[in-house]
């Protein structure tokens, strides 16, 4: 059911000394990391540290302040809008504008970068759409309107849309907020299996640090100065999680990989 593209891994996304923010006010600086094909990465950090800003900068929704963003060695600024849309797809926190779209219509919109001037779907487009529906198990929901869906279902539909866009990189801004524990785990496990089986690089921001530790290949901890980027086990070894929150409220237990409330 999964189509494996290429087995030799190479770097798809490279961030060097990036500084993100709005106009001249830097929100977060000194960010560097490299991601290979098929890697599943989380960006964690406290509220307001700049997780979403970073993701929005990588996704070309806002300009960077300094540093470089390279996609397979090619700077972000060298892409035309269409080429970029074939390279990076997104799942955003903002609600979609028209909840009157059916699930199948919404997923089909993911094919826009490939369709002709009026948006007719070719047979390739159809098969990509069907593939996305299959991977996210949305068969039963195909003809439903978006306003009829639960938050968890809608999130799966939005991921299917990003998948149908057939990009090397998928960026997700807080894909698990508003979901219960079961659906949080369901979505993250799905994303992980998509990354590993289709060789797509998946980056998401999250507050679910404990789940990220268990599921992700790499984690970027945004703290404003060090911005450690490593595998979860290395980060635990380096005691990188200990300084994330004030130690008088929550402490990190490195043996269980979980946070505990300081009483």
């Amino acid at each position: 059911m999964f189509i494996i593209k290429n087995t030799d891994k190479h770097i798809t996304l490279e961030i060097k000394d990036l500084c993100v923010g709005y106009k001249t006010t830097a929100v977060c600086s000194n960010i560097s990391f490299k991601l290979n094909q098929g890697e599943f990465m989380a960006i964690v950090g406290v509220n307001g540290i700049g997780k979403s800003t970073l993701l929005r900068t990588i996704g070309n929704f806002q300009p960077k302040i300094a540093g470089s963003i390279l996609f397979e060695g090619k700077p972000q600024t060298d892409f035309t809008p269409i080429d970029f849309s074939k390279k990076v797809s997104v799942v955003l926190t903002e609600p979609i504008a028209s909840k009157n779209l059916t699930v199948i219509e919404l997923i089909a919109l993911g094919r826009q970068p490939y369709t002709n001037w009026i948006g007719n779907l070719s047979s390739t487009d159809q098969s990509k759409i069907n593939e996305a529906i299959q991977i996210l198990e949305l068969h039963a929901l195909k003809q439903k309107k978006c306003y009829e869906l639960s938050d968890g279902q809608l999130q799966r539909v939005l991921i299917a849309r990003a998948l149908a866009q057939d990009t090397d990189i998928i960026l997700l801004d807080e894909p698990t907020t508003h979901l219960d524990l079961f659906h949080k785990v369901q979505i993250l496990k799905l994303l992980k299996s998509i990354a590993h089986h289709t060789n797509k690089t998946i980056v998401f921001t999250s507050h679910e640090i404990e789940m990220a530790i268990q599921l992700c290949d790499k984690i970027l901890i945004l703290d404003g100065h060090q911005n450690s980027f490593e595998t979860p086990s290395k980060l635990i070894e380096n005691k990188a999680f200990e300084s994330l929150f004030p130690s008088n409220t929550v402490v990190f237990d490195s043996r269980s990989g979980a946070f505990r409330i300081q009483k």
Binding site: G59, S85, I96, P113, Q165
Partner: peptide, 8 residues
């Protein structure tokens, strides 16, 4: 924003 991400 989604429209932009679709290359529009």
């Amino acid at each position: 924003n989604y429209a932009k991400s679709l290359g529009i």
